[in-house]
């Protein structure tokens, strides 16, 4: 899905880097640690800890909120997951916040839970599959110009670019279908390496860039 999250190479996000602070703590404020833990638990309750579904919820947090605060983004994703699965009503968190600060008002009733389900090949995201690999190290590959409307792990900046397979990675569940509870559809994964000039044009800094791409993203280039 196109959106604010797909920011690789996007000049509208260019700006000064944050300072490297060796003493930075994992959570700047106590609420951040609680938001971290609560989001993990919300995703456990709503999706049986479907990681692509969590990422897709983060991607659906509105742009302003997405950019404002990292753990605020997590809170937004937790609410999306809980509302999507019918564990909380839309607006329930805001209503509770008002109750907590002493306002009188109605809190919405819980909906009927309708947690999405999907057959799973086990815990984690790696899988062992029998299908032979379609590609080998050294193969030249490209990707489709069309971005999917749902979740994907193919960054926009790599679409239609030509790269070379440089390593074979373990088979993994396919995020594009898992995020939507269609199927895990596990498949082979490849490290694909691009010359910066093929990504960004002749004037680019010299370097190369590697992405780990799922087999069904790839097409062979002769």
């Amino acid at each position: 899905m196109d959106g604010v999250h797909d920011m690789g190479g996007s000049s509208k996000h260019f700006g000064p880097l944050k300072a490297l602070d060796r003493s930075e703590k994992p959570f700047a404020e106590p609420w951040e640690g609680r938001a971290f833990a609560l989001t993990l638990l919300a995703n456990r309750a709503a999706t049986a800890s479907n990681l692509p579904a969590f990422r897709h919820a983060l991607e659906r947090v509105p742009e302003k909120e997405y950019l404002a605060n990292y753990y605020g983004r997590w809170l937004g994703s937790a609410e999306i997951l809980l509302v999507d699965s019918g564990l909380l009503a839309a607006g329930a968190v805001e209503a509770r916040a008002k109750t907590l600060r002493g306002e009188k008002g109605e809190e919405p009733a819980d909906p009927e839970p309708h947690k999405p389900t999907m057959e799973s090949g086990g815990g984690g995201n790696l899988r062992t599959i029998d299908a032979p690999r379609a590609f080998a190290v050294g193969d030249r590959v490209t990707t489709s110009a069309t971005g999917p409307t749902g979740h994907t792990r193919l960054p926009g900046y790599a679409r239609t670019k030509v790269g070379t397979i440089t390593a074979l990675r373990p088979a993994q569940i396919f995020p594009d279908t898992t995020a939507h509870f269609v199927a895990e559809n596990p498949q082979h994964v490849y490290s694909v390496t691009y010359d910066a000039h093929d990504l960004w044009g002749a004037g680019s800094e010299p370097f190369n860039l590697t992405l780990d791409l799922y087999e069904s993203y790839l097409e062979r280039v002769q």
Binding site: E29, P30, W31, R34, A35, L38, A42, N69, Y71, G72, L75, A78, E79, V93, E94, R96, A97, T99, L100, R101
Partner: peptide, 9 residues
């Protein structure tokens, strides 16, 4: 965000 976290919790 702190109040929102408390509400979710």
């Amino acid at each position: 965000l702190a109040l929102r976290t408390e509400a979710l919790e």
